[in-house]
């Protein structure tokens, strides 16, 4: 069984979590149409260490996991805005 650690609720089986995709920052509102379309559709699909949204379903907690998408190893998890605290 694969485990993931929710920063609030602790270590739980992966089945309690929902993947929310990569954490991304939107371009500024005055960006070009092409930049906006690229933001809407394109993803950084190549493997590597990424920050991703994850959701602990029983408690409704959204948090961020730093994960290597090649090895599926999670380096750390934290609440958004509390990146430095761990």
């Amino acid at each position: 069984m694969k485990l993931l650690t929710c920063p609030v609720n602790g270590t739980r089986p992966l089945s309690e979590f929902v993947f929310g995709g990569e954490y991304r920052v939107a371009p500024p509102a005055d960006c070009t149409d092409a930049e906006w379309a690229a933001y809407v559709h394109n993803r950084s699909g190549a493997p590597g260490i990424k920050n991703e949204w994850w959701y602990h379903a029983p408690s409704g907690t959204w948090f961020i996991a730093e994960r290597n998408t090649l090895t599926d190893k999670v380096m750390r998890t934290y609440l958004k805005g509390q990146e430095g605290s761990k």
Partner: peptide, 9 residues
């Protein structure tokens, strides 16, 4: 080739 696409694996 520095090409962005919507593809995820």
């Amino acid at each position: 080739v520095d090409l962005d696409t919507p593809i995820v694996i």
